[in-house]
Amino acid sequence: MTLTPASPDPLSGLDQNAGPTDGHASGHSSHANHSLTGFIIFLCSESIIFFAFFTGYAVLKLSSLNWLPPGVEGLEWRTPLAYTAVLVSSSGTIALAEWFLNRGNLWGFRAFWLLSMAMGTVFLYGQAVEWAGLSFGITSGSFGSCFYLLTGFHGLHVASGVLLMGLMLIRSFRAGNYEGGEQGVVAASLFWHFVDVIWVLLFLLLYAWPA
């Protein structure tokens, strides 16, 4: 069974004046056609906070005499690399999901959307396992502080991304909902790509940069 949304191209909603749906006076409800602009501005701003953490990490690491706490040899990078592959390929599956939505194939969209959510969850699980097995904690000097802050803050973003995608998945079951409101999907997908790019940088900084 395939539900066909009335508007075949979700991006066309950007140029339409999506009318207010609640009983509020016109103009005082959210202007849906501006949401994506606002969301992109938010993502740019959000990237600065990661940039601040990255530079803080680099400054502390470069100026430190004993970077690794006693008894720590470095980070094991092979397993995280595998989970990195999972997270990065989820950017592909989410793009595929959007492609299906553009074609009006809602079930294809849902399948790949759910797959992307699952891959994000697998990544989070991998990170939890890694945290549980580490011999240092957040108070083990600057190294421990940076490691847990960076991975934890990124993990929060992955979790938020999965929740956001879950919300979009539920909304896809409301009949006719994606006739003008697909910007949520575009935004969630943008957010997911953002989280992926941040992780690649984070992986290079934390695991690939030798102590």
Binding site: L60, S64, T139, G141, S142, S145, C146, L149
Partner: peptide, 19 residues
């Protein structure tokens, strides 16, 4: 929490905060 971003005794850098 007791992390060491700015605490010199844990390898932190107080001037980093100023930046």
């Amino acid at each position: 929490v007791g992390t060491s971003f700015y605490r010199p005794e844990g390898g932190g850098d107080p001037v980093l905060y100023q930046h």
